[in-house]
Simulated assay, not measured.
Amino acid sequence: MAEGIQLGALRELCSAGAVRELLAVAVRGGGFALRARYGLIERTLMTQRGQVRVFRSLDSLAELARFELGIGRLAVELADLQRRA
């Protein structure tokens, strides 16, 4: 997975219009991570403790993207999506 970024820094990049794509990436074991692409750089949203932030649902990730980051478009990558047992 790509290097990390904290929410505050990502928020600043989004408000500056620097983020060209937000990508919801399915995580093995369940949930989705948020990956941001800006310029030639790609970063994954991390927790304050340095772990990949995993959202339980696309809905919760989409709410963060739309209402906290102000981004109206989100791509979804399902390569690591696992079938529920």
Rank of each mutant, 00 (worst) to 15 (best):
A16P: 07
D59N: 02
G72E: 15
T44W: 01
T47Q: 14
G8V: 15
V25G: 01
A16H: 10
L81I: 02
R66P: 07
V27D: 03
A33W: 03
V52E: 00
Q48T: 05
A2F: 05
R28K: 15
L13H: 09
R20W: 09
S60I: 13
F55Q: 02
A62V: 03
A26Q: 09
R73Q: 13
L13G: 10
V76P: 01
L64R: 02
A18T: 14
L61K: 04
A36E: 08
D59Q: 05
G30K: 03
L45Q: 00
E12C: 01
I71T: 08
L64V: 06
L64C: 06
L34Q: 07
D59P: 00
V54L: 05
L81C: 02
E42Y: 01
R84C: 12
A65I: 05
R73W: 11
A75S: 14
L74S: 14
G4F: 04
A79Q: 11
L45M: 05
V76A: 00
R66Q: 13
G4M: 02
F55K: 12
L22E: 15
G50Y: 03
I71M: 11
G8S: 14
V25L: 03
G72R: 11
A79D: 12
R83T: 09
R20C: 06
V25Q: 02
A16R: 12
G31A: 08
Y38I: 04
Q82Y: 14
A36Y: 05
V19D: 11
G72K: 10
S57D: 08
V52S: 03
G17W: 07
E68F: 05
V25K: 02
F32W: 14
A79S: 13
